[in-house]
């Protein structure tokens, strides 16, 4: 393991991932982070265990199986497993598996769009309750200063960034909410690539970014 992850996802998010109540873009963030972070994986699986125990505990009085339910299930089994398209993943990619699935390949498959000052983004296809995008910030460059209406989570995939005295490297997640105004600056040594998810549009300070925001969907 090349780097010790210091900034993790919160218990709330990990529990909601286990419960299956998060928007798809947030699920993508959790699956991507957990692919790199065994501490959070253990946390998610302990919340899975809570779900399992609640399932085991609950004997529903008013729920009965349909007549012939078992025979129908055996017929499903006889029909063979549901065919799943085999997952093809690039080994050694900086994109963890779940992210490769959404990009449709490795780094060279990302469809970047410039959003100014060398910063690029690629919006990933998820349900509309929240959005997920990849961000490319040139080494040493800053993201525009922005606040938030909702929750924003940003995870580093390549390079690193500095924000308000905290340092974020591969696997680290920065959590921001409506109280946060921040200006992440990419580390000088390498271009920074991040996964960012949010459940509300970002609010940029200043007129130009506000206009750009209407077109760039950030």
């Amino acid at each position: 393991m090349e780097y010790d992850i210091k900034h993790h996802l919160t218990d709330d998010i990990l529990m909601a991932y286990a419960a299956g109540t998060l928007p798809e873009a947030f699920n993508l963030m959790v699956a991507t982070h957990v692919s790199l972070c065994d501490a959070c994986r253990a946390e998610v699986e302990s919340y899975d265990a809570v779900g399992g125990e609640v399932l085991a505990l609950d004997v529903p009085d008013d729920v009965a199986l349909a007549p012939g339910s078992f025979a129908a299930t055996m017929a499903l089994i006889a029909g063979g497993p549901v065919q799943e398209t085999p997952v093809v993943r690039a080994p050694g990619s900086i994109l963890p598996g779940p992210l490769q699935d959404y990009v449709g390949g490795d780094l060279d498959s990302i469809k970047w769009r410039a959003i100014g000052l060398g910063v690029k983004q690629a919006i990933l296809p998820t349900s509309r309750e929240a959005s997920a995008r990849l961000l490319f910030i040139p080494a040493g460059a800053a993201m525009p200063d922005h606040g938030h209406n909702g929750i924003e989570m940003t995870m580093v995939l390549q390079g690193a960034f500095q924000d308000e005295g905290d340092y974020f490297a591969r696997g680290d997640v920065e959590m921001a909410d409506s109280d946060t105004h921040h200006t992440p600056v990419a580390d000088i040594h390498e271009d920074c690539i991040c996964l960012a998810v949010t459940d509300a549009p970002l609010q940029f300070q200043g007129l130009i970014p506000k206009i750009a925001q209407r077109f760039a969907r950030i």
Partner: peptide, 14 residues
């Protein structure tokens, strides 16, 4: 890593 109940829960949740 999981009890049978937990494993079935994750399949049902998905």
């Amino acid at each position: 890593r999981a009890s049978v109940a937990t494993w079935i829960f994750t399949i049902a949740r998905n």
